[in-house]
Design a binder for these strands. Structure first.
Length: 797
DNA sequence: GCTTAGGGTTCG
């Protein structure tokens, strides 16, 4: 029987000549002779009958616990069982069982893009394949994860049973002289640079939950032994570092046996260790440590909330920034300067420095199409960076740190003025030295930033080859949604003003999408579309108590509530604090009856002569109530209910005041008609009336969904909490008067002119807040709101 | 053999 159940008490039956290989390393070219894989059954599909006595069954097996591979996705693999093996597996194996499989073949998984599992699948047929079922409490029959001889395999992760348990000291508890292990979030770093001694030196500063910032200096002769830090916020784990005093504060240096592993610091991304160690320990505790530090860092305002990474499309003169790009070509200029020709698929709104070098000294493509040429930034790197640049191969993806955008003319060494333009351009310099982390780093192809960059670049290449020849200039602008090149930076029409005071560089929308919630971003974008188109749908009623939001009821609904309320009219016990009377309306139309309306006035207010301040109005229509607003400050519509005064259904306004209508929350109000005490009250306003009547006042709010766009992506964001600031109009005013409504309409038209192309739309400098919220299905997702931003009104209107 | 650097913009 090809399915063996190794129950408790029986001796291990997995043949001893088989060696285990990690699931993650399997490829279609792996020699799987005499190999086994081990993992937990995380999914068991149904037994499917193909023909009489012929079956197929699909299961997913996941590598267990301590073993961690290059990519967490490739820890789980689809396993297809055939024939009686499938049938027996179905009978004997349950989800959660740990199984060992042998005698399999490896195929390409046709579902890799759908299920994101291992790119291969394992095929087990009756002839030769075996499944051994281990119960979880049962000892592993062949625990070594891999045999020693398989040295060609990627990094082996040590087995938890043998590995020492590492302990990590919090950065607030460092003792001088001790050699310890630490975790920390990177708040500053320099790429390794050549020291005057024998080693390269990395400088970094890290922080953890103890809120202690600690400087670290790492000396290693080999570059690959240095921390692989790509950006601030990355998380490092260092083993065997020594704490010592320097300048009266404690710092860390590496000691013998030092090792470092780096992780991306973005909440929600895969926890993938970056290391060149062939052997390193990593278990669930490490994963948890990384995730805790990520969440902690995301909640800390003291950490920089965004990276300094700026695409070429957002580069401004004089800016120091980090550029993620692809190297297309390079050329030595002189001994202290090298030219790097790079691009990131976005178009810089400024004219770029053109550097003409002779083709024979250029490494990589010497010339490009005119369209492509306009997207290429010429980066001049100096001094110590020349040596790093020398080793770069065209095609690699880079991040250049602390690159400087220099406006105006710049002399390029060895070139005459006819070779480089000297007016109105941006030049990019990577100055000598390592201040502010200045340097160059090659990014691995699998990094999220490179993946995103590739996507943008590929989109361009498709456009470049197929569509662009047919497009006219204005279409080009629309495709790229960048301002026309002939505009000066100063003249680029930015229609908003931020008041947030954050000191941050703008990021692209694709970067925003990659960051998790709990962050604030600055973006430069255009408005692609918005909802709702009809203004009154943007106006909502919000309860600050239960945080519910509802539409403002239309007049038809309100009028029907008034009509229904007056149907129940009957005799009423007037409360002792009120006086009843009748008022007559001035009616324009002769056909309507000149019926008098019953009102109740507050005795106390009447005694003070304030007869116009508050009335309780019985059995009126909506129209009549509105008419009386001209004569009375506060009108509370009431009805009779079993001989007592009662308020109308709370779908209707409970108060008409100062040309405005006020609503109460049905869920949170305990409405009852009581005496409204005016004692000590200067102005009887909606808050006082609501409180007296036991009503939870609903607040008028504006809610608009904006679809933003930049060269990298589109993003739906909400305009809500700061919508009034954005429009410079209060929602309450917008609910009451046409002027305020027109102002909002004009603002939206100016940002998104009806019928206008993207090229004509103004650019908006926005502050965005990313946060977590539940959608209608109870799923948590990241939402965005525009904050601290005001639209600048055109002065002509 | 057991240092090197010890963040805080070039000066083209």
């Amino acid at each position: 029987m090809p399915v063996h159940v190794l129950s408790e008490g029986t001796r291990p039956q997995v043949p001893g000549h088989l060696t285990r290989i990690p699931i993650s390393v399997i490829t279609t070219s792996t020699d799987v002779t005499d190999k086994i894989i081990k993992g937990k059954v995380v999914l068991k599909g149904p037994l499917v009958s193909l023909a009489a006595d012929n079956f197929i069954l699909k299961t997913v097996i996941q590598e267990e616990g301590s073993v961690l591979s290059i990519s967490s996705q490739s820890l789980s693999i689809n396993v297809i069982l055939f024939g009686t093996l499938a049938k027996n597996f179905n009978h004997s194996v349950y989800q959660g069982n740990v199984v060992v499989a042998s005698g399999f073949t490896v195929g390409k998984s046709p579902t890799v893009h759908k299920d994101n599992l291992h790119p291969c699948n394992l095929l087990l047929s009756e002839d030769g394949a075996h499944i051994y079922v281990l119960h979880q409490q049962h000892p592993d029959p062949r625990s070594p994860p891999a045999s020693k001889k398989s040295s060609s395999l990627p990094p082996q992760v040590s087995n938890t049973a043998k590995a020492p348990k590492y302990t990590y000291v919090k950065l607030g508890n460092l003792k001088a002289g001790s050699v310890i292990n630490v975790y920390g979030v990177v708040v500053f770093f320099k790429q390794p640079f050549k020291s005057r001694g024998t080693d390269f030196c990395s400088t970094l500063k890290i922080i953890d939950q103890s809120n202690q910032k600690i400087g670290c200096t790492i000396f290693c002769e080999k570059l690959e032994d240095h921390p692989k830090i790509f950006q601030i916020g990355d998380i490092v784990r260092m083993h065997r570092v020594k704490a010592q005093f320097f300048n009266k504060s404690i710092m860390l240096v590496n000691t013998f046996g030092f090792s470092v592993v780096t992780f991306d610091g973005v909440v929600g991304t895969a926890v993938e260790p970056r290391t060149s160690s062939r052997s390193f320990h990593f278990d669930q505790d490490d994963r948890q440590m990384v995730e805790e530090l990520r969440t902690w860092a995301a909640s800390q305002a003291v950490l920089p909330t965004v990276t300094a990474t700026v695409p070429l499309s957002a580069v401004q003169p004089k800016l120091y920034f980090d550029l993620t790009c692809q190297l297309l070509a390079k050329a030595p200029i002189d001994t202290t300067c090298t030219l790097l020709r790079v691009w990131d698929g976005t178009r810089c709104p400024h004219t770029l420095l053109k550097v003409i070098v002779e083709p024979h000294i250029t490494e990589g493509q010497a010339s490009f199409s005119k369209e492509r040429e306009n997207l290429i930034a010429n980066v001049l790197v100096y001094d110590n960076h020349v040596e790093v640049a020398r080793q770069l191969k065209p095609g690699v993806f880079l991040r250049i740190y602390n690159l400087r955008a220099i406006p105006g003319s710049t002399k390029v060494p060895g070139l005459t003025s006819s070779q480089s333009e000297e007016i109105d351009h941006l030049a990019f310099h990577l100055h000598g030295g390592t201040s502010y982390g200045r340097g160059i780093r090659v990014l691995p192809d699998n990094s999220p930033d490179v993946q995103e960059l590739k996507r943008v670049i590929e989109a361009f290449q498709e456009n470049d080859e197929e569509e662009f020849p047919e497009l006219n200039n204005s279409d080009l602008l629309e495709v790229w949604s960048t301002p026309p090149e002939y505009l000066d930076a100063e003249k680029v029409d930015c229609r908003t003003e931020r008041s947030c005071g954050h000191d941050m560089q703008p990021v692209t929308l694709s970067e925003v999408k990659q960051s998790g919630p709990g962050r604030v971003h600055h973006v430069n974008v255009q408005l692609r579309a918005y909802e709702p188109c009809r203004f009154h749908e943007a106006l909502k009623l919000y309860c600050s108590n239960c945080t519910s939001m509802q539409d403002v009821p239309d007049d038809e609904l309100v009028a029907s509530i008034f009509r229904d309320a007056s149907k129940d009219s009957g005799p009423i016990n007037v409360p002792p604090w009120a006086l009843s009377g009748q008022i007559k309306l001035q009616r324009d139309s002769p056909d309507s009856s000149n019926q008098a309306l019953t009102v109740h006035l507050l005795t106390q207010l009447m005694s003070e002569g304030k007869t116009k301040d508050v009335i309780l109005l019985m059995d009126s229509t909506l129209e009549e109530t509105c008419q009386l607003m001209a004569s009375y400050q506060n009108i509370i519509p009431v009805r009779s209910s079993e001989g007592h005064l009662a308020l109308l259904d709370l779908s209707a306004p409970f108060l008409f005041r100062d040309r405005k209508r006020y609503y109460g929350c049905k869920r949170c109000s305990k409405a009852v008609v009581r005496e409204l005490s005016a004692e000590g009250v200067e102005v009887m306003d909606e808050k006082i009336v609501a409180e007296a009547l036991g009503i939870q006042l609903l607040q008028f709010v504006l809610l608009v969904k904006l679809e933003l766009q930049d060269a990298t992506d589109t993003l739906d964001v909400w305009l809500w909490r700061h919508a009034e600031l954005f429009f410079s109009v209060s929602a309450e005013d917008a609910a009451a008067n046409q002027e305020a409504q027109n102002s909002i309409r004009q603002t939206m038209d100016s940002l998104c002119p009806p019928g206008g192309s993207m090229g004509q739309r103004p650019w908006l400098d926005l502050c965005l807040m990313a946060y977590q919220a539940e959608d209608d299905d109870g799923q948590t997702k990241t939402c965005y709101q525009v904050c601290h931003t005001t639209v600048i009104k055109p002065s002509s209107t």
